[in-house]
């Protein structure tokens, strides 16, 4: 019956591509600078809403990492997001008023842009509050990683989400424009992650961290997924299925070794919990534009006002990727 499953997955992938194709009209082009994309460039795709304050640091972080071009989708922001992005020389910008939820949480838009502009490029798909780190990222640019992956014949690279949080809930509006959010949210959980194997898509399903510990302790099965495969050597036939948690063809999800060895992997530092978190949680809870009816946000909204601080004396303060490698959250694998 293996071929039946395989065929079903193939149909699912085709369907995802078809939906991406249909949703392309929702994206209104504001600035298209994709002509500047050169062979071997690394491209970043992100969808954002009202992220004006975070954008300056976000862009500079990824420019420093060696990302060459940004494809941004502005989901009807009401702040200066669009105005700011329009002026950036390495950003191509699209605008949409359509529902984030109905676009499978942005996946359709993203699949479309990747298919249209990123064939044969390494693509990094992240949110504005996610910071990609990988082994040696303090001494080697992302191009070194992608060249090495090319040499070894690997076309997808996993980076699990690590939720970062502050020690004390910061005051409203204490995050300044252009500031490194990791200065505020510098703590994380080092070893409370649950990993399960998904035989259908071959991916690992990782849950845990502070969100499971505090917001989902009574229904851990609903805790948000932390497994992500954000860096892919894109081919126009690929499609993300559920955020960047998994892709089709499913071979791309095999970013782990099952015989005992370690493959190389990175991490996405998730600086979600900043000063604006509780107001955002309440807004998003009202908007219900997120996964599974925004159950994540409603769990936050219900909990954030309690004294449920995320920080504990066992929390770890972030230093660098080597620390994460020692803790066993990421690995150098065969890269040296």
């Amino acid at each position: 019956m293996k071929w039946r499953l395989q065929y079903r997955l193939r149909l699912r992938r085709k369907l995802a591509l078809w939906r991406a194709f249909k949703k392309r009209r929702q994206l209104k082009r504001i600035r298209n600078r994709t002509n500047n994309i050169k062979k071997n460039d690394v491209i970043l795709i992100c969808t954002c809403k009202d992220e004006f304050k975070r954008l300056p640091y976000f862009l500079s972080y990824y420019r420093d990492l060696g990302v060459n071009h940004f494809l941004c989708i502005d989901n009807n922001s009401t702040d200066d997001t669009a105005k700011y992005l329009k002026e950036q020389p390495d950003v191509s910008l699209w605008h949409t008023k359509a529902s984030y939820k109905k676009a499978a949480f942005g996946v359709h838009w993203m699949n479309w842009l990747a298919r249209r502009y990123c064939h044969n490029h390494w693509v990094l798909t992240v949110d504005v509050d996610e910071f990609f780190i990988f082994p040696f990222c303090d001494t080697r640019p992302i191009g070194a990683l992608t060249d090495w992956l090319d040499d070894t014949g690997i076309s997808s690279f996993s980076a699990m989400l690590i939720d970062m949080y502050p020690k004390e809930i910061p005051e409203q509006d204490s995050y300044l424009e252009g500031q490194n959010p990791l200065e505020i949210a510098q703590w994380f959980d080092s070893g409370n992650y649950s990993i399960k194997y998904n035989p259908e898509y071959y991916n690992l399903w990782i849950q845990g961290g502070p969100r499971a510990r505090v917001f989902f302790k009574n229904k851990p099965e609903e805790a948000p997924s932390l497994n992500k495969i954000p860096l892919v050597k894109w081919h126009r036939s690929y499609a993300y299925m559920q955020s960047t948690h998994m892709l089709l063809p499913r071979g791309l999800n095999l970013t782990y070794e099952t015989n005992g060895g370690e493959k190389a992997s990175g991490a996405l530092l998730h600086a979600k919990f900043l000063d604006d978190f509780s107001s955002k949680a309440q807004n998003e809870n009202m908007r219900k534009e997120h996964y599974a009816g925004g159950r994540e946000y409603s769990a936050y909204a219900n909990n954030i006002n309690d004294s449920n601080a995320l920080w504990s004396p066992m929390s770890e303060r972030y230093i660098n990727w080597r620390q994460l490698e020692i803790l066993g959250l990421l690995s150098k694998g065969n890269w040296a």
Binding site: S158, A159, M160, Y193, I195, Y197, L204, I206, N227, T255, Y256, E257, T258, N259, G260, G261, E262, K263, A264, S265, G328, L329, L330, S331, K332, G333, N334
Partner: peptide
């Protein structure tokens, strides 16, 4: 590291199934 890995570690890129 690539062949044996760190024994007893279960993570995103080392997940012994067998």
């Amino acid at each position: 590291r690539r062949i044996l890995g760190r024994e007893g570690l279960y993570m995103q890129s080392r997940f012994p199934i067998h």
